[in-house]
């Protein structure tokens, strides 16, 4: 796996990450389409994910929880906006019980096969800074927040490029 491009747009609250995998597009699609494979990478090692519902159809839902070191459970969900196997997936995501009233964060996944590898572009559009903070709570688990120095380091890398 190689990350080939990152764009952090603070005006649009949008993060774009382009990565490459040495596998056919159908194989890369499986890490999203197979809930058992999704569980192996969605949560960090100390907060493994358990997928409860996994309906990758338009309007379908994925629900999951992540279990922390003390046994605490952090619940999260996706609502599928569109799906086109094995090329694209777009969904809203949030944590806690699904709330239809609030603007949600959306994630768009695009897979493109080139000879011998697959390019995966993930575009995450956040509704608000508050939404980002809430999602980070479940995305990383409590107590696994990054040290400020690490953030500064990664900001410095991108600024220099």
């Amino acid at each position: 796996m190689t990350v080939i491009a990152v764009d952090r747009d603070s005006a649009a609250l949008t993060l774009t990450i382009v990565s490459e995998f040495g596998a056919p597009v159908e194989r890369v699609w499986q890490v999203w389409a197979d809930p058992r494979q999704l569980e192996r990478w969605w949560g960090p090692p100390n907060y493994p994910a358990t997928v409860v519902d996994h309906d990758l159809t338009n309007g379908g839902r994925v629900t999951y929880y992540m279990t922390g070191p003390d046994g605490e459970k952090l619940h999260g969900w996706w609502r599928i906006i569109s799906v086109d196997p094995p090329r694209s997936l777009e969904f809203e995501e949030g944590c806690g019980p699904p709330n239809e009233d609030l603007p949600a964060t959306t994630a768009e996944v695009r897979l493109v096969e080139t000879p011998a590898k697959t390019t995966m572009t993930i575009i995450t559009r956040f509704a608000s800074i508050a939404d980002m903070e809430q999602l980070l709570g479940i995305g990383k688990g409590e107590g696994t927040r990054l040290a400020v120095g690490q953030i500064d380091a990664i900001l410095a890398i991108t600024t220099a490029s």
């Binding site: 796996m1 990350v3 990152v6 952090r8 747009d9 603070s10 609250l13 993060l15 990450i17 990565s19 995998f21 040495g22 596998a23 194989r27 890369v28 890490v31 494979q37 192996r40 990478w41 969605w42 960090p44 995966m120 993930i122 995450t124 956040f126 800074i129 980002m132 903070e133 999602l135 980070l136 995305g139 990383k140 927040r145 990054l146 690490q150 953030i151 990664i154 900001l155 991108t158």
Partner: peptide, 23 residues
């Protein structure tokens, strides 16, 4: 916003590494 986007970038880099492991 930049700091939060950087946190999500690291979160996704972790996920992408793990996808590489799964593959």
């Amino acid at each position: 916003a930049q700091a939060l986007l950087a946190e999500f970038e690291l979160l996704w880099r972790g996920r992408l590494d793990r996808i590489g492991d799964v593959l």
